[in-house]
Write a protein that binds this DNA or RNA. Structure first.
Lengths: 332, 332
DNA sequence: TTGTAAGCGTTATCAA
DNA sequence: TTGATAACGCTTACAA
């Protein structure tokens, strides 16, 4: 159908200059204003558009960074992606997003594919890849930053939420409100252990008995299911959930049992998903500033690939968002 | 630091064959099994990874399609992106996502940048670009599919929700439940007019008085604000909201006014955002099957760029999801 | 300030 | 079945 797109050669011909000159006009090299104008008219006349592929091939810079994400549709992950884009777009860079589907093998392939596409840096969100395969596939690879996960300090930058502190804060908040029998529904991956530790520490510091602790998944179903088990402990007045989805399951269970939140049970979640403020009652939770974390990750990646800057470990503070799911107990 | 990545030339050297042969080994051309094996060992020995940039330059195929999206963090858009990826990954293709921020000029630039990167096709989600600038910047561009928006039938494929039908269904549902005074809070962009028309038509068909209709934005704030205005009409028993966010605002307003949903007011939303099932009461709404729409868009794009298939207009049916925000009125 | 020409890492054409 | 070699569209010394 339509003939091929015009190249720099066509522009050069139309403007009566060499390709080198066109290139200079395009990239702002030393050039006479007069020539510059000639080239520009030729460009618009032909409808020329530069081919960044060819450009990248010679410069060795694609202006693309790769992001592997467990699930684009996860609200937190989407926010992180947004944050990454926030800073990339100021630099005229783009990102290529690929979903790992929480499956290590898929993640490995994703990384491989991104590397073939010559991404200049890599941001891995919540990767489930073991240390060795990660190190192995990234050998000779570009600057890499890990979000929601640790890695060898020399090789990777990491952006990680202070899970321990957040959990500690949540538990302490309960305690400050007069609660003594505080349960925890724990999660497995992505900081679940840290959150459990934070809960434990807060309880110990207050000389309160640790537990009951239920080891669940990280989902609403899990929360609903664990709730049944948990509420056999009649004296529990408060539950710290390892994430908001668990809390949601707990909400649902309470509703089926006719339990009032926070009167019969106080609840704190973790993550501050966009909709937890709309629950009834609005959920008190620990915020994970996802977009901000994305911004930091991208900034770190950019710093690393522009040379000099070594990978850094950036801790993110988890803030407690006070809403209405915790009751203040009268002093006994 | 580390020396440059090995190229096909290094592999050729190590295997004692020509680059052409390596290329064939890589891409499955005619090759002796023996040679194939030699090349493969050389590849793993060197840790060679093919450069898709160079490949794309010569083949003219990048394996990348461009997606411009109003906002990655919008749940519906994120779902669409997910759907697009669902089908791309089966073809070993990737997508490059760029946010238009609901700003026509940014969208235009986004398209421009994606074209420079030689994307093989373009999927534009809810573009706010006028017909002319769209046609203009896409001149000589690749296969393009428009989601949530119309375009010239010959040039663009479109995937669009049956907004009219959805609105008609919602309104008819109210009517079937015995409601007579049904209000509508309308939205502006992205199918808002169609939804308004659907509402009108359903009312007319039932010989019911149209209105009140409030022209609002598409946000929660707008919904909250419009609610106040709307509820001056004392005999309104049901409100069809042009989207779920408006419905949320209405929920919030009702709560502040001590109005019970659905006893004092029945509500239907539109979109079926992931969390509306968790509202109190769960919101009855019209589902927009976003992920499925993304899949269809990607399939359509792939079909177009593989030749033969002309752009098609695919209508998507909007299904009513029955939950608990509508009261059945006793027959008067 | 401009032009010439040598790459960048592949694939594709054509002989061998 | 294999190997030379010419593209692909651009940037970048080096010369002029």
């Amino acid at each position: 159908m339509s003939k091929r797109n015009p190249t720099i050669l066509d522009v050069a011909g139309a403007a009566g200059v060499s390709t080198a000159t066109v290139s200079r006009a395009l990239n702002g090299g030393r050039i006479a204003p007069h020539t510059q104008r000639k080239v520009e008219t030729a460009i618009t006349a032909l409808g020329y558009r530069r081919n960044k592929l060819a450009r990248g091939l010679v410069t060795g810079k694609t202006g693309v960074i790769g992001v592997v994400i467990p699930d684009i549709a996860g609200p937190l992950y989407a926010q992180m992606a947004r944050g990454i884009e926030d800073v990339l777009e100021t630099q005229g860079m783009h990102f290529m997003l690929v979903t790992g589907n929480r499956d290590p093998e898929q993640e490995r392939q994703a990384i491989e594919l991104l590397l073939e596409r010559q991404v200049e840096a890599l941001i891995l969100i919540g990767s489930g890849l073991q240390h060795d395969p990660l190190e192995e596939t990234l050998k000779g690879g570009p600057a890499t930053v890990l979000m929601q996960r640790e890695g060898s300090k020399e090789r990777f930058a990491t952006i990680s939420l202070a899970n321990f502190d957040g959990a500690f804060a949540a538990t302490s908040y309960f305690i400050a409100k007069g609660h003594k029998n505080i349960a925890h529904i724990a999660g497995i991956r992505r900081g679940g252990e840290e959150r459990l530790r934070g809960y434990r520490q807060a309880m110990k510091n207050a000389d309160l008995p640790v537990g009951p602790v239920i080891q669940g998944g990280f989902t609403e179903q899990s929360g609903y299911h664990d709730a049944a088990q948990l509420l056999q402990y009649k004296d529990v007045t408060a539950v710290f959930c390892a994430n908001d989805r668990i809390a949601l399951g707990l909400y649902r269970y309470c509703k089926t049992q006719g339990l009032q939140i926070p009167d019969d049970l106080s609840i704190i979640g973790f993550d501050d998903l966009p909709w937890v403020a709309y629950l009834d009652p609005p959920l008190t939770t620990i915020r994970q500033p996802a977009r901000e974390m994305g911004r930091i990750a991208a900034t770190q990646a950019l710093a690393m690939l522009s040379g000099n800057t070594p990978p850094q470990n950036t801790p993110i503070t988890a803030e407690l968002i006070e809403r209405s799911s915790v009751k203040t107990l009268t002093i006994r």
